[in-house]
């Protein structure tokens, strides 16, 4: 493998050919502010926050769209760069609500990160008052256009990652906005509710409903279909409060569908869950203790010969559950009458 050498802020680094200046900087631990870049999406060059100075180039190019060449000399922190970034951010926050303390994205907002990095403490441009409608039609997430900064991460996601193309930028200039075909509510569009766009929105424009910040996270595997997406369940106070795609699994590389992303907590924590063994007495099922239930099952099953018993195991249960059940059928009940619904 041949490497290219470049210099960022007087530090020499080596990267593979084809690397962008933004990737090179990130890999070497140099922060460059950006709002439209996403590791899963093609470089966009839309927000212009990642501009840098490159020796020998007259304009300041965006780092995300500039490919490293041998002996490139990059400076990410000049006065000119800072001034230009500042005017970009001034434009964005001019019509941003800035109710940070009560915003659901507070402390998880990339606009806050960038503003803090650039040392923004006040609005430089007059506030442009405009109240835009909120699309609340989807049961799992809200689209609040008032927070939207038009970075186009969502529209690019719905194109490049899901291939659904449910949302796009409509209108021009000051009236631009993210919307569906025919400017209809999301629920009436072809949107599949996968939430991939929500996962990538840097601000509070696309946010999951009923989502609170978890205190811990644990990685596990989705219980719905055979794709086997891995996910991180966010836990707070003994309850599942959030779900994120896990990037470590080659099965899904961070992506999820609507069932995995929004269909977990409600069924796991459903009030109708069975919580106690039940026993049929005079034709109704009534609650009983584990002790009694297990004894009855053991006693009844012992009374039959192997060929009088059948066991149906489950494609929803774990490998360990299934291994134990077939071992039980074969070695304790003495029958190979074991199947599950794979066929169906």
């Amino acid at each position: 493998m041949n490497y290219l050498r470049l210099n960022i802020n007087s530090r020499e680094i080596k990267v593979k050919p084809g690397t962008t200046v933004l990737q090179a900087a990130q890999a070497s631990g140099t922060y460059i502010p950006t709002l439209c870049a996403d590791p899963d999406l093609k470089p966009h060059g839309g927000c212009r926050l990642c501009i840098v100075e490159v020796k020998g180039m007259r304009n300041m190019p965006t780092a995300c769209t500039t490919i490293v060449s041998e002996d490139m000399v990059v400076n990410t922190e000049t006065e000119a760069v800072h001034k230009e970034r500042r005017s970009v951010i001034d434009l964005i926050i001019a019509d941003h609500p800035m109710d940070c303390l009560t915003c659901i994205k507070n402390q998880r907002c990339e606009l806050q990160d960038v503003a803090a990095y650039l040392g923004i403490t006040e609005r430089n441009l007059p506030r442009t008052i405009k109240q835009k409608p909120i699309d609340d039609s989807n049961p799992f997430f809200t689209f609040n256009h008032n927070y939207c900064i038009l970075c186009q991460r969502c529209t690019r996601t719905c194109d490049e990652i899901t291939g659904v193309n449910a949302i796009e930028i409509i209108n021009r200039g000051y009236n631009s906005k993210v919307s569906t075909f025919g400017d209809k509510p999301l629920m009436e569009s072809i949107c599949k509710s996968c939430g991939e766009c929500v996962a990538r929105c840097p601000v509070a424009a696309l946010v999951a409903k009923n989502s609170i910040m978890p205190t811990s996270k644990i990685e596990t595997t989705c219980p719905y279909c055979g794709v086997g997406c891995m996910m991180e369940l966010g836990i707070r106070n003994g309850k599942i409060v959030s779900v994120e795609g896990s990037r470590s699994s080659q099965a899904n590389n961070g992506r999820l569908c609507v069932k995995g992303r929004y269909g977990i907590a409600d069924f796991v924590q459903h009030p109708e869950r069975l919580v106690q063994p039940l026993l049929r007495k005079s034709n109704t099922l009534i609650e009983t203790s584990w002790e009694e239930a297990l004894n009855i099952v053991a006693q009844k099953l012992s009374a039959y010969s192997g060929d009088q018993i059948a066991v149906i195991a489950s494609a929803k249960c774990t490998n360990e559950d299934n291994y134990i059940v077939q071992k039980f059928a074969r070695s304790v009940l003495g029958t190979n009458n074991i199947d599950h619904c794979a066929r169906l």
Binding site: G226, A315, T318, N322, I338
Partner: peptide, 22 residues
């Protein structure tokens, strides 16, 4: 072949079938 339920593959692999063990 795309398996339907999350662990159909595993249930088969583990021998929850009438003719084979794991």
């Amino acid at each position: 072949p795309l398996r339907g339920q999350n662990n159909v593959q595993g249930a088969c692999d583990m021998g929850s079938l009438p003719n084979v063990c794991s």
